[in-house]
Nucleic acid binder design. Structure first.
Lengths: 140, 140, 140, 140
DNA sequence: GTGGTCTAGACCACT
DNA sequence: GTGGTCTAGACCACA
């Protein structure tokens, strides 16, 4: 491709964008839905990106295709994905796109409040919790 | 326990020790079980403490008494609670009791790892996350 | 029941509120969804009414329970139904309720426009179409 | 056909004879098939008329050429169209031709019965429905 | 009893 | 190849 010539062609996303824990009590299809919402809010997937096929995701994760399909369908109903008949799903143009930092932090707030509740039940001081979280965040 | 201070009569715990979110996909009975485990590891409930009655907890939380009863039964099977016929449940003497700081932190690690995953999907930097968590922990 | 004493108890809806044509190309679950939306807009089902169980509807219609469940889930996601854990689904309080005549007519407009298109392709005059529709409407 | 008026050369139909809604759950190829059946029953297309090319219809409607091709093939199998090698499809001589009014009305009956069902679910009175349909039919 | 989730597998519509 | 729909049947969470 000649430098200076930019092909604005949609990206094909791979099945590895998803990570599920089958042991969790959270339903798999819901894990997929919430991950995709975050990836979209974080700007890691953008309008026009082609989603990995239902079958690819299903075989990669070792789950039934219908489980993935259910997640895709609900994301389509919610407007985050659009179906291209016979071609697959892609990220909707309508999708709000990369949110600003404050909005994204707000999406994390409920999870952090849960942490705070658990920490208080465990009688953990703020410093210990922060230290551990910092090391986990840095380790990634 | 402060030396010189003797527990003569067991403490009666109130239903407010539990907080559940009925909207969550996590089963209510499991929320109850995990909260009680944390309260016990954190030393906030100790051997001999009388648990609030199934009926009180159920009405306080607005859930079905069977749900609370199921949690209590599973905690009894696990050895954390014991059933005192005619008196209700109390925290078992056998219960390991207050764990050390490192052990309690380990109980929080899975939740923190989930936070790290969500944060990375939201493209949030460590500093912002730490700042928000700190403010939430301090606010409590 | 003593006259003058009114029990405001929620009504239990029967499976016969639904009619599906399995031969149609419109998916069964979607037929169910759209029928329920109309019944609600028409005020024939109101907030608090208990929906017939998934199993009842499935056996009455001769379809798989998952098909009915899918319709119920999507109506729940859309806010028209709420799930009462262990008890079944009921019409949401939030549901807008009986719409006014003009709004309900608007819900019928797309179908009527389709009729107009088909009639024009069949070279049918307005009078004949109106006459036939009138007889069908009266026959009900 | 007016006496004295002779069709010497077949008419070339344009792609605009078709109208599809891609959002509908009704398959596009079926929408095409049914529209053509109606146009033929209504006498708007007659034996010998040349159908617009698959490519024209596809680009005009924004659908895949295979979809149009499939509809044409099924109409050919049904005998309504014939394939003229190198020239495209045309309306078959064998086609029954313009049906009488009663027959055409019967083709519309199923759609009207659906209207009646929807109207009853919306608790709409016959008069309102008739009034709206009349205005739509007149407006066209 | 209620609905929810998941699987395995079939068939369909569309590219 | 893509996703959609449906079935039959299993197991779970909750009342």
């Amino acid at each position: 491709m000649t430098p200076g010539m930019t092909h604005i062609k949609p990206r094909q996303l791979g099945a590895e964008i998803f990570q599920v824990s089958t042991g969790s009590s959270e339903p798999i299809y819901r894990q997929l839905i919430e991950q995709l919402r975050r990836l979209q809010a974080g700007g890691q997937i953008v309008a026009g990106d082609a989603m990995p096929s239902v079958r690819d995701v299903a075989s990669e994760l070792g789950v039934n295709p219908m489980t993935v399909s259910k997640a895709y369908s609900m994301l389509e109903a919610e407007g985050l994905l659009v179906r291209r008949r016979g071609l697959g799903m892609e990220v909707a143009a309508q999708a709000k796109g990369h949110s600003d930092l404050a909005s994204r932090l707000e999406l994390l707030r409920p999870s952090l409040e849960r942490i705070a509740l658990e920490a208080s039940q465990l009688e953990l001081d703020a410093k210990s919790v922060i230290t551990l979280l910092t090391s986990i965040l840095k380790g990634k």
